[in-house]
Nucleic acid binder design. Structure first.
Length: 467
RNA sequence: UGCUGUGUAACUCAGUUGGUAGAGUCUUCCACUGUUAAUGGAAAGGUCGUAGGUUCGAGUCCUACCACAGCAGCCA
């Protein structure tokens, strides 16, 4: 290996075990410090980890005066040199450069990112540059790890990853305004009886972007057992909050032959697995979040991993809310849909930990949730966590054909439009359950980032689709 | 969409009862330094979100609009 230059990531180059090697590093300059003694320090980052590596560039390098001395934040470089034990404090290793090639410098007068803290709001305007900041580098490394853990968790348990459609023609998947998809000429819409004639549209009918893959997930669970989806989801609501996006990523497992209790257990194991992996694989990034963003995230995650999620019925939750002295803007009584303030009180004040509420009133939940024998409630469950609120919503699905049809009618839906969904109950129906987890919601919880727009690369919200 | 708040230099902000703008950071230059968000000194940098209005005079008061943020609803 003598004389062979090996490309290392900054992450690996920071490990003392590689000292003595001739290496190549490529990345972006974070900052440069000059010494009159005849050399410069370059802080190099390549995104492989939070920390930078220090490059020592001597003045006798051929391009020292005209290039290296002018390197500014944001410049891209290729470094060749020897990895050495650092003479200074603050890092184990550094690179004594034998060559500094500048791919492209960065004009410090106009480069937006400064060597200081920027507000997250300002960084949102620079979504093309914010991954170069410490915080967003950490956010997206953690996002990657969470995505990996999600696949690992399900794959290790034999779940099949399936891709449900992004374009759908079923208007009535449940809640939420949907984005319309069309190839009609909007300046010249074909009309029939004064209304747009969708028989002329691409799919011969109105079509939309999906708000959930659940119903299609049930099809596959009814054939292949346990499945999960992990894909983009769209809601056209005019939501302007720190926890809503028009385009977000959702994970929806659907499990055959599983009841609500089993469903809750999977949800709990699932969240714990993600947290455990993130703490192990992203230790440095999590330290950063704990230090700079929210000093409770590490303690909270550890606490959650090591404790059982509480399981509380809706009815019990209502009793708690009715007894407390806490003042709510919305009055509490059995049958109401819980407001954010109620959910937050329960998980943040009363229990001070994640809690799973289940068995909600049938009047406030969708048709597909299984009816309980009490005639009043359905097998719904919501996982509530402090600071974020609802992170998972799920249910055991109604598998009895007659009950399901009855529920559809109860909610003003036309069973004929769901003929294929009903077929699953006609031919070999099974008890089954599933839930939906918002990727961005759990990332908010893990990182402590308070605005959901800061845990997705390019947030889509009303009036905002830049980049 | 509703309520509340914010909008002053490239960035973060201050601006007192209305009298035509100030700090830190960044940048440039000088000094010093195996430094590490380096340090010390100097300079440069602003039609105070937009459009009207009140006033002798408006960053400061009023109206409308725009943008952003927080909370609420919708939910993940």
């Amino acid at each position: 290996m003598d004389g062979v230059m090996e490309k290392l990531s900054v992450r690996n180059a920071r490990l003392p075990e590689h000292v003595g090697r001739q290496i190549i590093l490529e990345g972006w300059v974070r900052t440069r410090r000059d010494s009159k003694a005849g050399f410069s320090f370059i802080e190099l980052n390549d995104g492989s980890c939070m920390a930078n590596i220090q490059i020592v560039a001597d003045a006798d390098l051929p391009n020292y005066a005209d290039e290296i001395k002018h390197l500014a934040a944001g410049a891209s470089v290729r470094i060749e040199g020897e990895l050495k034990q650092s003479q200074g404090k603050g890092q184990a290793t550094e690179v004594q450069a034998s060559s500094v090639h500048v791919y492209g410098n960065s004009d410090p007068e106009t480069y937006p990112l400064q060597k200081k803290r920027h507000s997250f709001e300002k960084l949102r305007e620079w979504a093309h540059l914010r991954p170069r900041s410490n915080t967003f580098g950490a956010v997206f490394r953690v996002r990657n790890q969470v995505s990996k853990s999600i696949h690992d968790f399900f794959q290790e348990r034999g779940f099949l990853y399936i891709n449900t459609p992004i374009i759908t023609a079923s208007d009535c998947e449940g809640a939420g305004e949907m984005f319309k998809v069309t190839s009609l000429d909007l300046n010249n819409i074909p009309k029939k009886d004064g209304k747009p004639d969708f028989s002329k549209d691409f799919f011969d009918r109105p079509s939309y972007l999906t708000v959930s893959g659940q119903l299609e997930g049930e099809i596959f669970a009814s054939a292949l057992g346990n499945v999960y989806t992990f894909g983009p989801t769209f809601r056209a609501e005019n939501s302007n909050t720190s926890r809503h996006l028009a385009e977000f990523w959702m994970i929806e497992p659907e499990m055959a032959f599983l009841d609500l209790q089993g469903n809750m257990q999977v949800a709990e194991d699932f969240i714990k697995r993600i947290f455990t992996d993130v703490l192990r694989e992203c230790a440095e990034d999590m330290e950063f979040f704990n230090k700079r963003v929210d000093d409770t995230v590490l303690e909270t995650m550890n606490k959650i991993i090591n404790s059982d999620f509480l399981r509380v019925t809706y009815t019990e939750a209502i009793e708690i809310l009715e007894k407390t002295d806490h003042k709510f803007d919305y009055p509490v009584s059995w049958g109401i849909d819980l407001q954010s303030e109620h959910e937050r009180y329960l998980t943040e004040k009363h229990f001070e930990q994640p809690v799973i509420l289940y068995d909600y009133p049938r009047s406030i939940k969708p048709f597909y949730m299984r009816c309980n024998d009490d005639g009043k409630t359905v097998c719904a469950m919501d996982v509530l966590v402090p600071n974020v609120g609802e992170i998972i919503g799920g249910s055991q699905r109604e598998e009895r054909l007659d009950v399901l049809v009855e529920r559809m009618k109860e909610q003003g839906l036309d069973p004929e439009e769901y003929w294929w969904y009903l077929d699953l109950r006609k031919y070999g129906t099974i008890p089954h359950s599933g839930f939906g987890l918002g990727l961005e919601r759990i990332l908010q919880f893990i990182t402590g980032m308070t605005n959901i727009r800061d845990v997705i690369p390019f947030p889509r919200t009303p009036g905002n689709a830049d980049f």
